[in-house]
C-alpha cells in the first residue's frame, strides 16, 4: 500500500521511466519473496533425497548433501500408496467438476441485479457460511444418505463452498451488463447466455475457482477420514498422515526386517511424504496460471 503514495513524486518523471522503475521494483520484490518461500520448501525436498545419515545427523539444511531415492521409494512402493492416490484423484477430479458447475449455476442468477429473490438467497449462503451445526450432525446426514465409504460421501458435502461462490458472483457482477443484455435481445435463453457468453468471459475466475476446489478436495483430511471406514477408500492425505504420525514406531518396528535401510529416517520419510503429496496438485497450477495473466480485453469478446 506504500507504493501508490509515492505516486505523486513520480508523476513528474517520464512515463517510460516510471514503467521501468515499477517493473524493477516488482521483480526485486517478487524475487525476494520467491526465495523466502522456496528456501523452506527446498529444505523439505533436500531432507527427502539426502542420505539418511546426514538427515539424522542434522547436516541437511537447504541443499541436499547427496542423492538417494530409497526414502521416496519407500513411500511410493507400499501397497496403500497407489490405491490412495487413485482415490484422491477420483475425488478431486469428480468433486472439482461437480463443484465448479454447481457454483457457476448458482453464482450467475445471484449476480444479476434484476434477479428476484437475490438478496434472500444470497443471505442464506452467507448465513450457512457463518453458522455451523457441528461435526456429528453433518456426519449423520452423510450416514443417513448411505454415503459412508463412498466417493459421493467425500464429494457432495463440498458441492458448493460459499466463499468460492461469492468470488465467482463478484466476478460475474463486474461483467458488462450490455453484453449480457445484447445476448438476451438476440433471443438467447438464460442457460445459453451462461454457456456461450458468461463462461468464456469468466475464464480466469472459473480457472481460479477450479483450482480452489481442487485444492480443497486434494487437501481435505478431516472429512475424508470421518466419512470412510475401510482402508480401501483411504485418500492420499489419510495415508500420508498415518505414515507421518506413526513414523517413529514404524522405524523401530521394522528394524531388522528385510525392508530396513539406513536411509529410512523419520525426518526423511516425513519430507518424502510431503513432497509426494504436493507434486500432483502443484502440477495443476501452470494450467491455471495462463488464465491469470491480465490484459483480457472485454471488447474482444463482443467481436
Amino acid at each position: 500500500m506504500m507504493q501508490p503514495r509515492n505516486n505523486e513524486k513520480r508523476e513528474l518523471k517520464r512515463k517510460k521511466g516510471s514503467e521501468k522503475t515499477i517493473e524493477i521494483i516488482a521483480c526485486v520484490f517478487l524475487t525476494i519473496l520467491c526465495f523466502l518461500v522456496l528456501l523452506p520448501c527446498l529444505s523439505v525436498v533436500s531432507q527427502a533425497v539426502s542420505p539418511g545419515t546426514d538427515v539424522m545427523g542434522g547436516k541437511v539444511f537447504f541443499l541436499p548433501t547427496g542423492f538417494q531415492l530409497e526414502t521416496i521409494g519407500y513411500v511410493l512402493t507400499r501397497t496403500p500408496f497407489l490405491r490412495s492416490l487413485k482415490n484422491s484423484l477420483i475425488v478431486t477430479a469428480a468433486g472439482t467438476f461437480i463443484s465448479v458447475v454447481t457454483t457457476i449455476l448458482t453464482a450467475y442468477p445471484l449476480s444479476r441485479p434484476d434477479f428476484k429473490g437475490r438478496t434472500i438467497i444470497t443471505f442464506l449462503y452467507v448465513f450457512s457460511m457463518i453458522f455451523f451445526g457441528g461435526t456429528i450432525p453433518a456426519y449423520m446426514v452423510v450416514k443417513t444418505l448411505g454415503l459412508i465409504d463412498t466417493y459421493a460421501g467425500m464429494i457432495l458435502p463440498f458441492a458448493i463452498v460459499q466463499f468460492n461462490m461469492f468470488m465467482m458472483k463478484n466476478y460475474f457482477e463486474g461483467l458488462p451488463g450490455e453484453v449480457l443484455e445484447s445476448a438476451r435481445v438476440d433471443g438467447a435463453g438464460d442457460m445459453r447466455t451462461v454457456v456461450t457468453i458468461v463462461c468464456p468471459m469468466a475464464k480466469p475466475v472459473i480457472a481460479t475457482v477450479t483450482l480452489l476446489y481442487a485444492v480443497c478436495y486434494w487437501n481435505n483430511y478431516f472429512h475424508a477420514m470421518l466419512y470412510t471406514t475401510s482402508t480401501e477408500m483411504q485418500t492420499l492425505q489419510v495415508y500420508l498422515k498415518n505414515l507421518i504420525a506413526n513414523i517413529q514406531g514404524t522405524l523401530a518396528d521394522i528394524t531388522g526386517s528385510t525392508g530396513y535401510s539406513p536411509n529410512l529416517t523419520s525426518d526423511g520419510l516425513t519430507a518424502a511424504a510431503v513432497t509426494i503429496s504436493i507434486i500432483p496438485i502443484t502440477l495443476l497450477y501452470p494450467f491455471i496460471a495462463r488464465y491469470l495473466v491480465s490484459g483480457i480485453t472485454i471488447g474482444s469478446v463482443k467481436g
Binding site: V101, L105, Y151, L156, C199, P200, M233
Partner: peptide, 30 residues
C-alpha cells in the same frame, strides 16, 4: 463453448441424481 454446454448438461444431471438418491450416484464404486 460447445464443451462447456455439454459439460454443464451432464453435470447438472449427475449432481441432481447424486443428490436425490445417494445410492444412485454413478461415482459410488465401492
Amino acid at each position: 463453448t460447445g464443451q462447456i454446454s455439454w459439460l454443464l448438461g451432464i453435470a447438472m444431471m449427475s449432481s441432481l441424481l447424486a443428490g436425490c438418491g445417494g445410492s444412485a450416484d454413478s461415482l459410488q464404486q465401492r
